[in-house]
Design a protein around this nucleic acid. Structure first.
Length: 340
DNA sequence: GTTGCCGGGCT
DNA sequence: AGCCCGGCAAC
């Protein structure tokens, strides 16, 4: 859906082409601009899609109907309902975490965790054959970004259990069979719990709503005019480098969501920072502006607003990067990004 | 000539 | 409302 819109927009841009922009607007240039529409996502981290989002989406946006069904095959092929697979899903890694009290052990294989539970917690020595599947209820499947796995894992096993207390993340969930024997994938189901958990639990017990809402907000943010939101980040003087810059900013933002829960905690306050993305530019330069509403602009009853002393988008980014300008500048209106 | 942006038109 | 641009004043 978004894609189509984008496409349309791009096309528009092409046909309408800017006359000021003149020749430089080779198609290649525009192709870059496309992502810029969802800008923040930038190259590497699209709309925090799959990985980062997944953990929160389910709980909050019940929109996607077949969550459960999805999860069913989930474990094998991490296919999210995400229609736009722009994210490298391959970065996802499934781990299994023991939910037994005071344990929280994390293993990379189901077999491993099962055996762990069987032997350590259930006190059974026999091989998997004699398993009645009960172990399934004592561990949970968690998905991690491999990028983050390295450190995330460390965090998980060490941080998760303590933060949530000695009890498993399920909350007060005692290691007690949940009687879901009908389930084909007990652990998959558990995954759900983890999804919520990874975001919330770490943040400290009940921060759930917060951590949940944040990402969705982020989602919206990308909707439009994202380009303005991103660009402002201290664009260097060199026009050439500015390109790569936008993306960087983005990724840094999305990363906060992607990163393992632990990291997330620190960011838990960021919903503010997040929700404002569309707004971001203003925030970032806010220190200079103070209040957008109070600029001297109104003061000068004179017809023209003298001349902006500060650097404006045009000057800063140049015509070549016109799409990095703030909307106002592109419309030949008073610059919003570099308000005087 | 360039730049910032008002005023106004178009969708 | 969003978008674009003619044209003017300040540089």
């Amino acid at each position: 859906m978004m894609m189509t819109m984008m496409m349309i927009r791009i096309q528009d841009g092409l046909s309408g082409s800017w006359k000021e922009g003149s020749s430089y607007s080779s198609s290649g240039y525009w192709s870059w601009s496309a992502p810029s529409d969802q800008s923040n996502p930038s190259t590497p981290s699209p709309p925090l899609s799959a990985d980062s989002l997944k953990p929160f989406r389910m709980p909050s946006l019940g929109a996607v109907a077949p969550d459960d069904t999805l999860d069913d095959h989930d474990s094998s092929s991490l296919l999210f309902d995400e229609p736009i697979p722009r994210k490298r899903k391959n970065s996802m890694k499934v781990m299994f975490k023991c939910l037994w009290k005071n344990c929280g052990k994390v293993l990379s294989t189901a077999a491993g965790i099962q055996r762990h539970i069987r032997t350590i917690h259930l006190g059974r020595n026999c091989e998997s054959e004699c398993s009645d599947g009960e172990e399934d209820f004592y561990y949970t499947e968690i998905k991690l970004n491999t990028d983050a796995v390295a450190e995330g894992l460390g965090g998980l096993s060490t941080v998760a259990p303590p933060s949530g207390g000695p009890t498993p993340p399920g909350g007060a969930l005692p290691p007690e069979p949940h009687h879901r024997k009908g389930d084909t994938h007990p652990h998959t189901h558990a995954t759900n719990g983890v999804k919520g958990e990874s975001g919330a639990c770490i943040a400290g017990g009940n921060s759930t709503p917060l951590s949940r809402s944040a990402p969705s907000a982020l989602y919206l943010v990308h909707a439009d005019h994202a380009y303005q939101a991103t660009a402002p980040v201290s664009i260097p003087s060199s026009t050439s480098s500015s390109f790569s810059f936008t993306p960087t900013t983005n990724s840094s933002i999305s990363i906060s969501w992607q990163s393992p829960p632990v990291t997330f905690t620190g960011r838990s306050a960021s919903p503010t920072h997040t929700r404002s993305q569309g707004f971001g530019e203003q925030q970032q330069r806010s220190h200079t502006i103070t209040a957008l509403s109070s600029p001297p602009r109104a003061t000068s009853s004179l017809s023209r607003k003298s001349r902006g002393e500060g650097r404006k988008c045009r000057k800063v980014y140049g015509m070549e990067n016109r799409d990095m300008w703030c909307t106002a500048c592109r419309w030949k209106k008073a610059c919003q990004r570099f308000v005087d």
